Simulated assay, not measured.
Amino acid sequence: MYALLYGDTILDRGALREFMRAQVRGAPLLRACAEGDTAAVAALLSGFWPFVDAFEKAIDRQVAGLPIRPLVERFGRERTHAYFDMARAAVREMHEEEGSHALLWQEGARARRVDLAEYQLVDGVERLVAQATTRDPVAFFCWLAGTEYIAEEMAAYLCESPRFLALFPEGRWTWGEAHTEVHDGPSHLEIDEDLARAYHPSDDDAVASRALWDGIVACQALFADAAADVYDRMNMLQPA
């Protein structure tokens, strides 16, 4: 099991979650989904598919390229090697789980007869996906953490919406259920924040905390922009 390097957190997770919850529940696209609007559900599934798909591939790339020198300089070689082995295993586990999550997204799309191959890549989603290509491990793990907040809050909102769930077989959206499950040991979110903090060059917790906060909130805000773009695109395609 992955052991966090830091025994405490320097982030106000409650405030980050509250901010993300407001972005999710304030998005017209997701409110329409919660009301059972079939066009909105189709737009969500197709419009955000490039993001869901990119998430798995981004983790795969980072596993092979995580730098070790910054951790050796901070924690020493012996501790770093032990930690790095656990970190690599944890990130690989994320990759495996996100791969299965991508399959669950596809399952939901098939249930709604949405062809994911015909998605329209809108600007907001493209900018959100682009963040996955950074080679800066701090920025990358902040992006992963932001994505976890997005997935958890979107899943929580839609999985408590009866009209939305009624559109899926047996009233279950399996992708959402996967993101509301409680994990044994540290969550993906905790691991992402732990790694972002470990790679941040400052030993000043206030400096590191501000950088991590800004990186995570930037990802969350990009999601709100992306949801707005997907919704606008959906309305453009609606018959007059």
Rank of each mutant, 00 (worst) to 15 (best):
A3S: 15
D12Q: 04
G14N: 11
R17E: 14
F19N: 09
R21P: 03
Q23G: 04
V24D: 03
G26M: 11
G26C: 11
C33V: 13
A39E: 13
A43R: 02
L44W: 06
S46P: 05
K57Y: 11
K57G: 07
R61M: 14
Q62V: 15
Q62E: 13
A64P: 09
E73V: 08
R77E: 12
R77C: 05
E78C: 06
E78L: 12
E78I: 12
A82E: 10
A82C: 03
F84S: 00
R92N: 14
R92D: 11
S100M: 14
H101F: 14
A111T: 06
L116R: 06
V122Q: 03
V122C: 04
V125E: 02
E126T: 09
L128K: 08
Q131I: 08
R135N: 13
C142V: 09
W143N: 02
E153S: 07
L167S: 07
P169H: 10
P169T: 11
P169V: 10
G171K: 09
A178Y: 11
E181N: 13
D184I: 13
H188D: 07
I191Q: 02
I191F: 01
D194Q: 01
D204V: 12
D204I: 10
D205W: 01
V207K: 11
R210Q: 15
L212C: 03
V217E: 03
C219Y: 06
A226G: 05
A226T: 10
A227V: 06
D229R: 03
D232A: 15
